[in-house]
Amino acid sequence: MSKSKLDTILPVLSSLGVIGVWYAAQHAMGPDRQFLLPAPHQVFQALVAKAPELGQAARNTALGAFLGFVIAVVLSFVLALILSLSPRIRRSFYPHLMALQMTPIVVLAPILILWAGPGLPSVVIITFLICFFPMVVNTTQGLISTDTNLVDFFRMCNATKRQEILMLRVPAALPYFFTGMRIAATLAPIGAIVGDFTAGNSAGGQGGLGYLTIVFSSQFQMSALFAAALVSCVLGFIFSGAVIGLSWLALHKWHESYRTSES
């Protein structure tokens, strides 16, 4: 069997294994406990039955996650550029950034609702807050980690500070930037769901997956809850996948991490 064939078959086998164990566990619980774990086909039925609601909620969550993520990417890049200018600026900004990162979002959520109002604005802010820190830290690290030989080379060429930043430091920081972006991409849907959970609302069908989760859980719809978890998971994959794709586009031609055996 060829290696690539094996690579496709193994994940399929492991998925079948997981489903098998799932059914076995569900069966072993006995009728009085089966409400704890709906069977895979029940989850699938719930997925089909709740598809319109789940789809609408997923779109709303995706919108919140996307906006929060994009704002985090843009602002973190600007801040990272400022931070990269001098160690003194970094020293004076980092404590605030750390404090922001250390504050659990759940604690901030009720305050944010007071300020921004419930719904999309709060969801976007919460997503932004969760995504911002890893982006700033990684991008700044990238901007200040430029190969000193290359910096010397630019200085020897009489490059201006502007040229040094735009033509050297920024492209050299791209791998770090994308690392931050990958972390943020996995956090963005989580942030949007947590935001929706605590600060969402139902206006005009704007409820997202977090809101739907509360509704399902308050009505003990375990299968629907699992279906919502599945949809959230897929949303996470889409976000991560998109960023991994972008990262590939930007880096695969030149970066060592994409080196293949023949290049």
Binding site: L114, G200, N201, S202, G207, I214, S217, S218
Partner: peptide
Amino acid sequence: GPGAPWIGYVQKRYGITLNIIPLNYGLAQ
């Protein structure tokens, strides 16, 4: 509390739509 049956009841009974914010068990707002 989202999902409570009475919400559906009053919406249906009076033909209204409520804009629901999830309950957070606080009085600050």
